[in-house]
């Protein structure tokens, strides 16, 4: 897997795929996509990078241990779920900002929730794969 073409390609692929995964995440509410798919795409992006450059390199790019993404993601999801409590609404009720944001579109608690899912999926998948490659 140390071919030059693969290395060069994957170093460009990583940011592209990550960007794509965020795009997929954000448009999920209106077009096919969403947190699950986005998270999986991002994981694949990192996986491809680690194939080309080795695990150490990829880990140094991510900086933090992917395991930490799981609690952060869960916190996002739970936060979005209990946010309606503060305005006296039932659990998980969708709350929305009145006006759409530029580039992103409508932002609401559902999007925060989806971001949580996205982070959990990346965290879980990368944890699984890294702990395997680590010991192979």
């Amino acid at each position: 897997m140390k071919s030059l073409i693969f290395k060069t390609a994957s170093s460009y692929l990583l940011p592209l795929l990550l960007l794509f995964s965020i795009f997929i995440l954000l448009r999920g509410h209106y077009l096919p996509g969403g947190g699950f798919v986005g998270g999986l795409m991002a994981s694949i992006a990192f996986l491809i990078h680690s194939f080309a450059f080795g695990l150490k390199e990829t880990q140094s790019i991510i900086k933090i241990n992917p395991g930490y993404l799981m609690p952060i993601g869960l916190a996002f999801a739970v936060g979005a779920a209990i946010a309606p409590f503060f305005v006296d609404a039932p659990l998980l009720k969708g709350l929305w900002f009145e006006e759409p944001f530029r580039f992103i579109g409508m932002v609401g608690s559902a999007l925060i929730f989806d971001i949580g899912v996205y982070l959990v999926v990346i965290g879980a998948t990368l944890t699984i794969i890294f702990s395997i490659t680590d010991t192979v």
């Binding site: 699950f36 699984i128 702990s131």
Partner: peptide, 12 residues
Amino acid sequence: VIGFGLQSFAII
């Protein structure tokens, strides 16, 4: 997605 979790656990 859940199936993936299960499969990866089984593989490991």
